[in-house]
Amino acid sequence: MAALKTEIIIETRALCYSYAGAEEVPPAVAGIDLKVSRGEYLALLGVNGSGKTTLLKLLNALLIPSQGEVLVKGISTVEAERVQLVRQACGMIFQNPDNQIVATTVEEDIAFGLENMALPAAEIRRRVDQVAGRLGLTHLLRQPPHLLSGGEKQRTAIAGILAMQPACILMDEPTAMLDPAGRRDVLETVKELNKTEALAVVHVTHNPAEAAEANRIVVLEQGRIVADGKPGEILTDLKLLHGLKLQGTVAAELAHLLRQRGLNLPTAILQNRELVESLCISEPVS
């Protein structure tokens, strides 16, 4: 059991990547050593252009390393003939829900990856129904994608990945184009899968509140890892975050301002609830 818990799904070694035609600028990914284990929920933070998307594409073999290597379940992404295994083990969700739905109905879209795996029709049917039931999409199976809400589209995309039975799901700002309801919808779905199926998650986000939901946060700057730790450590370290032009959660930022005004608050405040509780202790209601 313990051995299973620490099974490494993704490992990168001295990973570098420069875009073609951009050799004179610093590489987009500049020497990253990262391990992602089974069941881990990792949030990737970093300002625009820090290399988050590039890193994710490297993990899914959409890009091939310029130097170093990426191992997904022990398979290097440069092994062209085994690339399908990498993509099956490591699914990717993109930011724009509209541009990743291929088929004209939800069920056919969920089936797309399985069709590419050349599974028999009966097996595809079984997996599509199972995953749709799991993600609450059963009543939408015959719907065309343009009639879905943003959250439903992203859940369809997640279902399409999940049906391929991956070990890890990579998400590049999956909620950036959604309304608050859709955002909650997607996050809860992913968190649930992470908990119950031990699905590893790598979640790129600009939203500190979303990052706070992870078990681990990795911060990138100019293609390098500059911080790696628990959300409680990273998101409350405002000196670090501000230095990187990032922000902590609302509660952490507010606690920081209140402390500057002389209020005696602990430094480990991350969530709104924690802030409220500390405030109510430090200023007992009369």
Partner: peptide, 8 residues
């Protein structure tokens, strides 16, 4: 990109 990521 999305199609390729899903093994097409």
């Amino acid at each position: 990109m999305a199609m390729e990521a899903r093994g097409y």
